[in-house]
C-alpha cells in the first residue's frame, strides 16, 4: 500500500479541475437551494447548455472562441427564463421534478443521433479549446513534491480558481445586501415576503438565473479544461454529486460549496486510489473474491450515497456548520 500516492491523488483532485467544476456548480446550487430554497435538480442541464453553448458556437457554426464564451454564459440565462417563467410558481417538489426532467431532455437531445449534425451525437464535440490553450503562459510543470501539475492543467487551475474566488466574492457581496436578505426570507416563507410588498417571483427568477449562470460557467470550464463535450458527462448524477459537495461544505455559506467540492474530491480520489491499490496486483490486499478491481471503483460511489444520506440526517448544516444557522428545513 502506497499511502504517498493515495494522498497525492487525493490532494491533486482536491485542488484540481474536478473540484473547480463542482465548486462552480455548487456555488450556483447554493444560490438556488441554500439561499433561496429553490430545489433545482437540473444543474446538469445548466452545465450542459454552458458547455454546448461554447462547443456548438465554435465547432458547428465556426465562430470565434470568445463569441462561444458569450453564448455559453447567455444560454443558461435563456434556459433559466424558459424554465423559470412557468415553474417558479410550482411547489418545491414539483420544481425539482420539472428541472430534473428538463436536464434529462437536454442530455437526450444533445446525444441523439438525429441532432448529430449540430451536437455531435453521443461522441460529442471537440476542437474548440485551442484559443484557451494558446493563451497558456506556463511552460513548465508545477512540482510541489507530493503533487504535480502539468502546464496545461496549471493554466486551467489558475483560471478556474480565479473564477471561483470572484464568484465567492460576488456571492458574499450580494448576500450581505438587502437583496440577499429578501432571498433568505423567501427561503423561509415566501408568502410572508409577498405580504410585505416584494415581488417574490422576480427575486426567484433572479436567483435562478444567477445560479444557472454559475452552472453554465461550471460547464464552460469543464468543456474548456477537457477540450471536449460529451452528453453523458451531464447526467443527473452530476447534479446529485454537486448537492453532496454543497451539503458537505454547508449550504447558505459563501465558502460552503468551495470547501465542500474540495473535500468531496479529496475523498472521492483518495478512496478510489485506496481501493484500486487494495485490489491491484497478483496478491491484492482485498482478495479478488471479495472485491474485483471494477468493484473497487464503485466503493467510493456507494460511499457518496451513504454519505449524502448521513449528512442530511445528522449534519444538515454541513460538516463545519452551526446547528443554529441551519439553512435547510430539517427541523
Amino acid at each position: 500500500m502506497d499511502f504517498g500516492s493515495i494522498l497525492s491523488a487525493a490532494l491533486s483532485s482536491a485542488l484540481g479541475p474536478q473540484a473547480i467544476v463542482f465548486a462552480l456548480a455548487a456555488i450556483g446550487l447554493n444560490i438556488h437551494f441554500g439561499y433561496t430554497g429553490l430545489l433545482n435538480f437540473g444543474q446538469a442541464g445548466f452545465m450542459a447548455v454552458g458547455a454546448y453553448g461554447l462547443a456548438v458556437t465554435v465547432v458547428t457554426y465556426d465562430q470565434s472562441f470568445w463569441l462561444g464564451v458569450v453564448v455559453a454564459l447567455v444560454a443558461p440565462v435563456v434556459l433559466a427564463l424558459v424554465l423559470g417563467v412557468p415553474t417558479l410558481r410550482l411547489r418545491a417538489d414539483y420544481l425539482a421534478i420539472a428541472t430534473i426532467a428538463t436536464a434529462e431532455i437536454l442530455r437526450l437531445v444533445f446525444g441523439a443521433v438525429e441532432t448529430r449534425e449540430v451536437f455531435g451525437g453521443s461522441n460529442g464535440l471537440t476542437g474548440f479549446a485551442k484559443t484557451f490553450q494558446d493563451l497558456n503562459p506556463y511552460s513548465g510543470p508545477l512540482d510541489l513534491g507530493i503533487i504535480r501539475f502539468r502546464p496545461d492543467d496549471l493554466w486551467s487551475l489558475t483560471v478556474g480558481w480565479i473564477l471561483v474566488a470572484l464568484g465567492c466574492l460576488f456571492v458574499w457581496l450580494l448576500m450581505r445586501s438587502p437583496w440577499g436578505r429578501v432571498l433568505r426570507s423567501i427561503r423561509e416563507d415566501e408568502d410572508a415576503v409577498r405580504s410585505l410588498g416584494k415581488n417574490v417571483f422576480a427575486y426567484k427568477m433572479q436567483a435562478l438565473i444567477l445560479g444557472g449562470v454559475f452552472g453554465g460557467l461550471a460547464g464552460l470550464f469543464f468543456a474548456v479544461k477537457q477540450a471536449s463535450v460529451v452528453p453523458s458527462d451531464y447526467s443527473t448524477n452530476i447534479t446529485f454529486y454537486a448537492y453532496t459537495a454543497l451539503l458537505i461544505g454547508g449550504a447558505a455559506r459563501v465558502l460552503g460549496p468551495v470547501v465542500g467540492a474540495m473535500i468531496f474530491w479529496f475523498l472521492m480520489a483518495g478512496i478510489g486510489a485506496f481501493f484500486s491499490q487494495a485490489t491491484a496486483g497478483s496478491d491484492p490486499l482485498i482478495p479478488t473474491w471479495a472485491m474485483s478491481d471494477i468493484q473497487a471503483s464503485l466503493v467510493r460511489l456507494i460511499l457518496v450515497g451513504l454519505g449524502l444520506m448521513l449528512l442530511m440526517i445528522y449534519r444538515p448544516q454541513g460538516i463545519f456548520g452551526d446547528r443554529k444557522e441551519l439553512a435547510i428545513d430539517a427541523r
Binding site: D153, A269, L298
Partner: peptide, 10 residues
C-alpha cells in the same frame, strides 16, 4: 494523470 474527467462515473 489525475486530471481525467470530473465525472465520477461508474
Amino acid at each position: 494523470s489525475a486530471t481525467s474527467t470530473p465525472t465520477p462515473s461508474a
